[in-house]
Design a binder for these strands. Structure first.
Lengths: 143, 143
DNA sequence: CTCATATTGAGACTTAGTCTCAACTCTGGT
DNA sequence: ACCAGAGTTGAGACTAAGTCTCAATATGAG
């Protein structure tokens, strides 16, 4: 995972600096979604001195490469999720934050129908699913 | 529209204060989505002195009543949309900000399939569609 | 190794939103 | 119409997220 991130950065034609390697490692060892503040805290915990601006800049870079995606949590906060670069959607566990990816499986029909009804020319869409992952269901069933 | 907002507030068992009436009027005369800052600016323009906290408090109230919904624009900003209280999704025009509502028309099948594949227990979902509304398509076709 | 250039970080700044608390204003009861 | 008490308000401090600037630094092509 670290390797993929670094390779992608390399392919993007940017420099592989120490900070970027460190951040890639921090992202790789994260489970589920995380915020910019999480990364900053991780870096601090390991005495890596990385500026706030650098974190946001890297996240933007990775987002441009579709290696990380921005999701909006139900409470309105922004988080990032490392993911495959192909188009897909996310299932977010509201208990533990775990993320699972799902592919389109039928959304296109829905958007086409919506376009037909409304007259809109649809350019993009975003679907986020919130619920509980299998593990959290086992821990405390039928919460 | 103003009337609906005020009635809903009344039903929610809260007081109908001058500020709430003013804000309801400002929301009613807005087209498409708006941000809290927009309302604040509107209020200032009309020399209505309404505090920032009051605006956020009213938006929260209306959101609780499902009379307003929070949408996350593609650029990451938060906006609010006045809407029907039933479950539905939004089409957002990226040119002019116009909003159109669409009902589920098939999403449930998609979420059910995603749940089956992932093992998640899905509690809620959010679908946002971005594109250009019919009017903007006419103004500048095939942008 | 060198040098042009990309990158970095400190910190000021902006924007969104929350919180507190004293002052104010609805509204139901009389 | 009046009162009292509970709900509401606004100023402004505060927090968090994110952006921007610019001098100093690190990278990597040659």
């Amino acid at each position: 995972m670290v390797r993929e991130l670094l390779e992608a950065l390399d392919q993007a034609g940017v420099r592989l600096t120490g900070q970027r390697r460190d951040l890639a490692a921090l992202i790789a060892r994260r489970q589920g979604h995380f915020t910019a503040a999480d990364l900053l805290a991780d870096a601090e915990k390991r005495s890596l001195s990385i500026g706030r601006a650098t974190v946001f800049r890297l996240l933007e870079l990775l987002a441009d490469q579709n290696l990380v995606e921005r999701v909006d949590l139900p409470d309105g906060r922004h988080a990032y999720v490392p993911c495959e670069p192909s188009h897909h959607h996310h299932l977010v566990c509201v208990s533990c934050g775990a993320i699972s990816e799902v592919d389109d499986c039928g959304i296109d029909a829905v958007t086409a129908e919506a376009a037909r009804r409304s007259g809109f020319e649809i350019q993009s869409h975003r679907l986020e699913l919130f619920g509980r992952c299998p593990r959290c269901q086992n821990v405390e069933p039928r919460q």
